[in-house]
């Protein structure tokens, strides 16, 4: 790790102010991506601004048909939260299979989506559930938030404060783990909104990061069942390929994981 200056912010405003005073600052949430990258000397921020102790970024709220998870909430607190388990059990499940216990005790939902790793789990949940990302400046719908590999709509110094999920009628998430990294080799989140709208998002599959899967959405809209997807063909064009999964294999996984997610959603 290169030398850096560490700051612990006690409020979002203080964090923004610290950011403005630094030449090349980075916000630190759970540190599950940023710190390993810094240790590898692949990132060298002049300043690291720790958001982990900001009280206003902690907690989960269920109000009517909206589940709001504050950005600094760690995965363990999400997966064990009674409101999450009641309102959207698929999010509790997704969080319980995210990383390993050490990651789940440190990592946060805000950190995950701000980083937008193409194999992260939470972007798929946000996209499929039609969530809204709240920042210190504005609200951004998930469809506008994720902009490709490690890229989001966030501006310099903008801080995610919370994510709001409309409570769906049904939702499910299944993934195939990458054998080495244990990220999602491919994961699929399926959701049927109370309005009847069906949205399906896949992570780990596309070269452009998390993506909607219109062909599966159409099939499920017509018939919400695993067998409805039997006839769908997913193209391997534009999908990721590496030593653990060819593009064709990932295309297959999009379909198979979607079927299993529908089964899990009930």
């Amino acid at each position: 790790m290169y030398q850096t200056t560490y700051h612990r912010a006690s409020s979002v405003d203080e964090a923004v102010s610290l950011f403005g005073k630094s030449s090349e600052a980075k916000f630190l949430a759970g540190g599950q991506t940023l710190l390993p990258v810094m240790k590898q000397r692949l990132a060298s921020p002049s300043d690291v601004i720790d958001l982990g102790k900001i009280k206003e970024l902690q907690g989960v709220e269920l109000a009517g048909d909206t589940l709001t998870i504050k950005a600094g909430t760690i995965y363990y607190d999400i997966m064990t939260n009674a409101d999450v388990k009641k309102a959207i059990p698929a999010i509790a499940h997704l969080t319980s299979v995210l990383g390993d216990p050490a990651v789940r005790y440190r990592g946060t939902i805000g950190g995950s989506i701000a980083n937008n790793d193409p194999a992260a789990d939470f972007p798929a949940a946000l996209l499929a559930l039609g969530a809204t990302v709240k920042t210190n400046k504005r609200s951004i719908v998930a469809d506008d938030f994720f902009k490709g590999l490690f890229t989001t709509a966030l501006e310099d110094g903008e801080i995610i404060t919370a994510v709001s999920f409309p409570v769906p009628a049904k939702a499910g998430y299944e993934k195939m783990r990458h054998p080495a990294s244990r990220f999602a080799l491919t994961g699929v989140f399926v959701a049927q909104a109370k309005s009847g709208e069906v949205r399906v998002a896949a992570t780990g599959a596309s070269q452009s990061g998390v993506m909607r899967v219109p062909a599966i959405e159409a099939a499920l809209k017509a018939n919400w069942s695993p067998s409805a997807i039997d006839g769908v063909t997913i193209s391997a064009n534009g999908l990721l390929a590496d030593i653990h999964g060819s593009a064709e294999y990932r295309a297959n996984l999009v379909k198979v994981m979607a079927q299993r997610a529908v089964k899990a959603a009930g």
Binding site: P179, A180, S181, D242, I243, H244
Partner: peptide
């Protein structure tokens, strides 16, 4: 080398 870390080399 393609597998020079545990992110790629599956133990």
């Amino acid at each position: 080398p393609v597998t020079a870390s545990f992110m790629d080399y599956a133990m």
